[in-house]
């Protein structure tokens, strides 16, 4: 392929911290890679691990889940549950051979526009290294 590979990243951002953090990065005119498809959820605790699996099925090369720092959750404890869940699905995906460089979680608060940039750059760079995801993409198998 002559064209440079641009990874597709699906990012689940919590409404109260990371989404606002990404917004801040935008209003502060901080440049960050445009590979993200952001899906806003009310809390990272709402991110069902199936969302991650489904994102990969539908063409994501990487997934990012981002929410409030521990202790700062708008719903007090949603991100703690999310953290447990995420750590397990990440282990499971790695176990069946999915590159862990595709699966990330971060804490980005509403005031961390600059951190948001760093996180996105790292996520995109790692997904780029991992290359296009095709292991269990739907990709019209046997259509």
């Amino acid at each position: 392929m002559s064209e440079k590979f641009e990874p597709n990243i699906v990012a689940f951002l919590c409404n109260w911290c990371s989404y606002a953090g990404a917004d801040l990065a935008g209003t502060s005119r901080i440049q960050y890679p445009a590979n993200l498809k952001i899906i806003r959820v009310m809390c990272t605790g709402r991110v069902n691990p199936l969302f991650i699996v489904n994102a990969f099925q539908q063409g994501a090369d990487g997934v990012l889940v981002s929410g409030c720092h521990p202790g700062d959750c708008h719903y007090m404890e949603g991100n703690y549950y999310a953290r447990r869940r995420f750590s397990l699905i990440r282990e499971l995906l790695e176990y069946i051979g999915i590159d862990p460089r595709r699966i990330h979680m971060s804490w980005v608060s509403a005031s961390e526009g600059a951190k948001w940039k760093d996180v996105v750059e790292k996520v995109v760079a790692e997904a780029r290294e991992a290359g296009p995801f095709d292991q269990f993409r739907r990709n019209k198998i046997n259509w």
């Binding site: 489904n54 499971l92 995906l93 069946i96 292991q135 269990f136 198998i141």
Partner: peptide
């Protein structure tokens, strides 16, 4: 439809992952 009914590597993997994950812990 979280997991399509069709049987292929994509849907089967999604099924197996969710079955296993739902039993985590």
């Amino acid at each position: 439809t979280w997991i399509n009914r069709s049987v292929n590597i994509s849907e089967n993997t999604a099924f197996q992952l969710s079955r296993a994950f739902h039993l985590a812990g």
